[in-house]
Simulated scan of single mutants.
Amino acid sequence: MKKERVFTFKTDEGLAEVLDRIPNKSEFIRKAIEEALGKQCPLCNGTGSLTPAQHNHMQHFLTVHSLEKCEECDAVHFVCQTDNDRSHH
């Protein structure tokens, strides 16, 4: 069995009150973190910002791609300018 480690974090009172109502906080938080890590941005690795070099590459990328909002699901996604007529679903 792998050794378990304990992590703590600070939160505001509102979130603390919501978490207090969850029967198994540890399991809930663990699953939420695992899900979030699986869905992080592949470019920034979940940091929320790009390095200057990544920003330069993104600027170049956006010369042949655009960001558009899907009319069906409202998700923002990349569209290659040569593939505008293809479905993304």
Rank of each mutant, 00 (worst) to 15 (best):
R5F: 11
V6K: 12
F7R: 07
T8E: 07
T8Y: 11
F9E: 01
F9A: 01
T11M: 11
T11A: 11
E13P: 03
G14F: 10
G14T: 13
G14C: 03
G14R: 14
L15D: 03
A16P: 01
A16E: 10
V18L: 14
L19K: 07
L19Q: 02
D20C: 03
R21K: 15
R21P: 00
I22R: 04
N24Q: 13
K25S: 05
K25C: 00
S26N: 14
R30W: 03
K31Y: 02
I33A: 11
E34T: 01
E34Q: 11
E35I: 05
A36K: 15
L37F: 09
K39L: 09
K39I: 00
Q40V: 09
C41N: 08
L43T: 11
G46K: 07
G48S: 04
S49W: 15
S49V: 06
S49K: 14
L50N: 02
L50D: 02
T51H: 08
P52Q: 08
A53P: 01
A53Y: 07
A53G: 01
Q54W: 10
Q54P: 06
Q54E: 15
H55E: 15
H55A: 13
H57S: 13
Q59V: 10
H60T: 10
H60Q: 10
H60R: 14
F61W: 13
L62I: 02
T63Y: 04
V64Q: 13
H65A: 01
H65N: 15
S66T: 11
L67C: 04
E68P: 00
E68A: 10
K69P: 01
K69R: 14
K69D: 01
C70R: 07
C70F: 06
C70D: 09
E71I: 08
E72T: 10
C73R: 07
C73D: 09
A75H: 14
A75D: 13
A75I: 15
V76L: 08
V76C: 02
H77R: 15
V79R: 14
C80H: 14
T82K: 14
T82L: 14
D83S: 05
D85Q: 11
S87K: 11
H88V: 04
